[in-house]
Amino acid sequence: MRLIFADTALTSETLFALLAALLMALSLVSVFTTRHLIRRLLALNILSSAVFLLMVLTARTTDGIDPVPHALVLTGIVVSVSTTAVVLALYLRRYRMKPPC
């Protein structure tokens, strides 16, 4: 552990790595502790953003920007919005079937 943190200077990459880790931790805990379904959906959205941030960070190599993670993140964003839409449609369906949630 000490070996990893020893030679870490505060650059923007380590800063964003810290941000990604914090966001992941926050949203993971939130996914498992909140009860409201839409809250969990929001937490999942933030979790996916944190994962995308991590992937874009790994794209910054010493010999230039690696386009592969960028392409993956682009498809990931679109997939995450479709997940959100399906969950919302399910939620509305559940509400309309049995009004008091």
């Binding site: 810290l18 990604a20 690696d66």
Partner: peptide
Amino acid sequence: TGMLWAAILGLPKPGLV
């Protein structure tokens, strides 16, 4: 957070540039 950060910083960066 600590565990993830350590893991992220220790990631190898393969790169397909």
